[in-house]
Every structure is written in C-alpha cells, then in structure tokens.
Design a protein around this nucleic acid. Structure first.
Lengths: 166, 166
DNA sequence: CTCTATCCCGACCCCGCTGGTAGGATTACC
DNA sequence: GGTAATCCTACCAGCGGGGTCGGGATAGAG
C-alpha cells in the first residue's frame, strides 16, 4: 500500500471541485454527498490542500472551495505530496524539499556501519519514477477521464433521469 | 511511505547472500551480524523469500541460505512483491496475480455509485511505473553497487582471511 | 549418539498511524 | 439574526508494522 485514503479522497475532491465549480465555490457538503465520503474527514483533507495553495476557500453561506489554478496546471506530484506529506518510498528516506534547491532524497541511515545502504539505489529509482509519473498527470486529465467514464448520471439525485436498468 | 522494512531488510538480506555465499550457504546469524538486524525478524522475512522460490535453505549445522538463481536473473519486482505481498498503490487495488493469466490490477470500489473512480487512471499509472522500475533493477546490480560503496571490509569473520587493514 | 548450529513455526505483544467522530468556534450571505 | 458554510482542536478505536519468545525439527561434528 503506497498511499492512504487521504490521497484518494483528496484527488477525488479536487476532481469534483474542478467538475462542478466552474464559477461558484463548491461546498464540502455537496462533494461529500456526490462522492459518498464522510464530511468531517473531508474537512481535514481539504485543509491540507489549502495549506499547499491548491484550493482557495470562501467562508459563510454559499461558500466553498475553488481551485487556485487551472486544472491543467495542477500536477499530481504536488497534490499527492500535499496530501501524504512525503513521497519517500521508505522510512529512511527524508525528502527535503528544502527551500534552497537541494531538493533531493537522501537516505538517513542511523547505525549504518559502512557508508551506504545498497538499497538506496533501488529506492531512489522508485522514488524518481513515481515522482515523474505523478508529475506527468494533471488534474485536467483526470477530470476529463472522469467525465468520459460517467457520460450518464451526471447528477446524483436518483430520479433526475431514469436509471439504465436498476 | 511506500514500502515497509520487510522490503528493506529482505533486499539487504539477498544482497548479503549474494555477496558472501558464492559456494556455501550463508546463515542468518552472519547476516544479522553484518547488517545489524534482529535475527528473529530476519527469519520471518527470509521465509517469504523462500516461499517465493528466491532462496533455498539447508538445515542443520553449517546450514543457511543460497540464492535460487543467479543474481542477474533476480529482478526486484519479484522480490518486493514477495516481501510486501502486493504492489498495489491503494487499498482499493487488488492485484490478482491469479493463476490464470488475468494478471491485472483492478479497482474494487464497493459503494461506487457510478462506474469508475477517476483516480483509477492515476493509481494505475503509478503502479505500472513502479513495477517497471523494479523489474529493471536486478539483484546483481545492487550487489555491484554495494561492493563499490564498501570497497574495504569485505569479510566479517575477523580471522578467516587476513583483513585488508584491520 | 549426542551435541550443537541452524532452519522452522506459531503465538504473542507494543505502539503509532490511519480513518473517522464530536463539538464547537468563526465567518458571511439573506 | 439565522443559517450555511469554513475552520480548528481534541478524542478514539482498530489495525498493521516491527519485533520477541520459545520451542521444535534437522543435520553435520565429535
């Protein structure tokens, strides 16, 4: 298991905001309903996205969330990093996206007698691979994929359109 | 955190067997000493590798483990899969390496009202990427990397061969 | 034949984290 | 001011990771 439900729910949340919120903000309540997710939990998840500057919020009645950028400019590496807190494939990896551009992953092996753990090579490759994969997928792509997956049943209210067969 | 210490320790274990065990089997005790890992825990980990047919064991005095194949023929995807039990990036992914060749990952979303979770596209990409990355790294490569990292201190038994310098 | 090094195996345990809840602030539209 | 929404903090249960323990089976050494 690489990722937790935070990543899952968070991505679905962004997709919903992108789909439904062309102009007005989308409330978490609506998202919780359409995606069938616990509202209180979504609140904590969206806080991560907000802290990362991926969504913006407006409070009060008719408030909600909007994307901070265009979906095509939101790449999944940033999203998953914000949600999971790290993309390190292994405990001993601390990915310091430090402010200065030393952005590299490094293996912090404590009691390592000799110099390097040989697994470093392996985990580094995995990490780079995952990062690249995520960076090559944009939110726009997922939104597009989603709407092609569900051409019908665009609404969740059950009687808006007669269901296909039961 | 993608992987647990099972993968870490298991890979290091294989590297040690490959390094030290050219002819005779290598005992877990020796590996536990050189790698500074708990012996009892290694026993459980190596059982996974044996069950997957990656190592062979000989019991009794002077027993231990040997690689079941040449290091160049042991690819990390098989290793990590054996150790972690799955390469699925998300809960809802069950990778059925079923007996019949239906070997594919599929998203088993329970209460999914409509058809597909849009995140499926994303997790599938990640899964394929990781699989490929792991499959492209062989044990031989890691052993080589390891010995280049530690040019000295090749042996752990202090008096079997006069050590290079202490 | 026994001793001992080793593999083998099941039961057990601690702890942190995930996933989720509760309850209350605060903010802003009507 | 009511109400719909975001915010924030504390709390909790379950589970899996990481590890231990103790004992058994097995085979080479003496």
């Amino acid at each position: 298991m690489f990722f937790t439900t935070k990543a899952e729910y968070g991505v679905r949340l962004l997709i919903e905001i992108g789909r439904q919120g062309q102009d007005q903000p989308v409330s978490l309540k609506v998202i919780a309903d359409t995606e069938n997710l616990p509202l209180a939990y979504l609140e904590r998840i969206v806080a991560l996205l907000k802290r990362a500057g991926l969504v913006q919020s407006t409070r009060g009645a008719h408030g909600g969330y909007v994307l901070a950028r265009k979906p095509a400019d939101i790449k999944m590496d940033e999203v998953v990093l914000a949600l999971e807190g790290s993309l390190a494939p292994m405990e001993c990896f601390v990915d310091d996206r430090a402010d200065d551009g030393s952005g590299r992953v490094l293996c912090s092996h404590h009691d390592d007698s000799g110099r390097g753990c040989a697994t470093k090579l392996l985990w580094t490759r995995v990490q780079v691979g995952v990062s690249n994969t995520l960076a090559q997928t944009s939110l726009a792509e997922l939104i597009d994929f989603h709407s092609r997956q569900l051409p019908r049943v665009t609404r969740t209210v059950p009687d808006d359109r007669t269901p296909t067969h039961a």
